[in-house]
Amino acid sequence: MNDSLHSAHSTDDTQYLIERAVQADQQAYAALYERYAAGLYRLCYSLLFQQQDAEDVVQEAFVYAFKNLRRFDPSRASFKTWLYTIAVSRCRNVHRRKRPPSMDIAQMSQLNLPAPQSEMPEAVLAQRAARDAIVTALGDLSARLREALVLRYGHGLSYREMAEVLGCPQKTAESRVRLAHKRLHSVLQPIGGEGLLEELLKIG
């Protein structure tokens, strides 16, 4: 792959890559994939909690985006939010097709594998439990609320960008985030009450 294609990450640079990709430049396609694949996978995984489903959506979203690159209008959206819009819509389709995913915390977190529990201090175990609890709570949220939290905090999107991706007014995106927080609390409290929230505070 051409190094110059990977050096900068500005919007202009992305636009340049898109223009080259439209002219069937394979390196430009590869560079776009390299740039956005990891983020897109994280997004899909956080919404679906299933590795295979998330990978399928990533593949479909990129294939669709690459084959329809001529239709991408940079004046209306950034390439990232366009790609996210495609992926979120496909994740919704997966949700519609399937029952809600079963919660496997270890797989859901997809964080580094823990050391054997016997060797771990109590505090670390408590923190891990707290972390798992928040992931479980996230899984219990409705798809719309989870989308809002994931885009906002997992990907740092502004409310305007969220509105673009979710296809809703900006106010709706904001109220979804607010509602998601509320739900998160009502889900977390039966698990560990205020004590758990204190635990969350201590993490990190």
């Binding site: 990891a38 994280r42 956080s46 928040i134 992931v135 994931v150 905090y153 609390h185």
Partner: peptide, 17 residues
């Protein structure tokens, strides 16, 4: 504030590819 910070910290780690 706590849960916001927690989400900001945890969510980017979810589903590391």
């Amino acid at each position: 504030r706590r849960s916001t910070h927690e989400l900001e910290r945890r969510l980017p780690q979810l589903g590391a590819p």
